[in-house]
Simulated scan of single mutants.
Amino acid sequence: MRATVDGNASVTNGEPSAAAAWLAPLILAILVIDAFITLALEVLYLPTYFGSTGFPLSGVLAGPVNILLVLGARSVSQRTAAMFLPLAAWTFGFLVCASTGPGGDIMLASDWRTVLLLFCGLVPPLVYIYIRVNSGLFSRR
């Protein structure tokens, strides 16, 4: 028998090694935690100003950061559900930040910057996942 190596984990005789079996869920858990951390930083820096003009740079950077999180999940697992894990954590955190706390405080204001953060944080990674899942449809033409 010949040992083969998969692109994502070392495989011997068709079975994943013990290290790859526990390392993939650990990396996915770290990516989910990283999604919460990046959202916290994006919400924190969303109301930044240059002079007297609002400049939500963190809202624009949310898209590339979330695409990198999805790419990280894809490098561990080829399953579509695994690619959605960091994005689902980011969305859950966004909804928590948009709701009122026990004292009535809201972390995200109801203005265009919040909409920009939501749009830029979700649309680019969802488009990437859509293209990745349906890549066979695009190449047949």
Rank of each mutant, 00 (worst) to 15 (best):
59 G>L: 03
54 G>N: 07
31 L>P: 09
68 L>E: 11
37 I>C: 00
100 T>N: 04
93 G>I: 13
53 T>Y: 06
50 F>H: 14
41 L>S: 08
62 A>T: 09
44 L>D: 03
38 T>M: 15
35 A>P: 03
85 L>S: 04
18 A>T: 10
17 S>G: 12
83 M>S: 15
56 P>L: 06
82 A>T: 13
32 V>K: 10
31 L>N: 14
39 L>Y: 04
26 L>Q: 10
79 R>K: 15
100 T>C: 03
96 V>G: 03
19 A>P: 01
26 L>F: 11
49 Y>E: 14
37 I>R: 15
19 A>D: 15
91 T>F: 03
17 S>Q: 12
70 V>C: 03
61 L>T: 13
87 L>N: 08
45 Y>I: 00
94 F>V: 03
60 V>W: 14
59 G>F: 12
55 F>T: 12
21 A>Y: 00
80 T>A: 06
20 A>S: 14
75 S>V: 14
74 R>C: 00
45 Y>W: 11
100 T>S: 04
49 Y>I: 08
74 R>T: 01
78 Q>L: 13
39 L>T: 07
33 I>L: 12
85 L>P: 00
47 P>D: 11
17 S>H: 04
52 S>C: 03
81 A>G: 09
55 F>G: 00
72 G>Y: 04
49 Y>M: 11
82 A>Q: 05
27 I>N: 11
60 V>L: 10
56 P>Y: 06
31 L>T: 12
92 F>P: 01
37 I>D: 06
80 T>N: 03
45 Y>G: 02
73 A>D: 06
33 I>R: 09
81 A>C: 00
21 A>K: 13
98 A>M: 02
20 A>V: 09
24 A>V: 14
68 L>N: 06
94 F>I: 00
69 L>Q: 11
66 N>P: 07
31 L>Y: 10
97 C>W: 05
27 I>T: 12
30 I>Q: 02
101 G>C: 05
92 F>Y: 07
58 S>T: 15
59 G>Q: 12
36 F>D: 02
85 L>Q: 02
65 V>S: 08
37 I>P: 02
45 Y>H: 05
85 L>D: 01
92 F>V: 15
43 V>F: 05
71 L>T: 04
57 L>P: 00
85 L>E: 00
70 V>D: 03
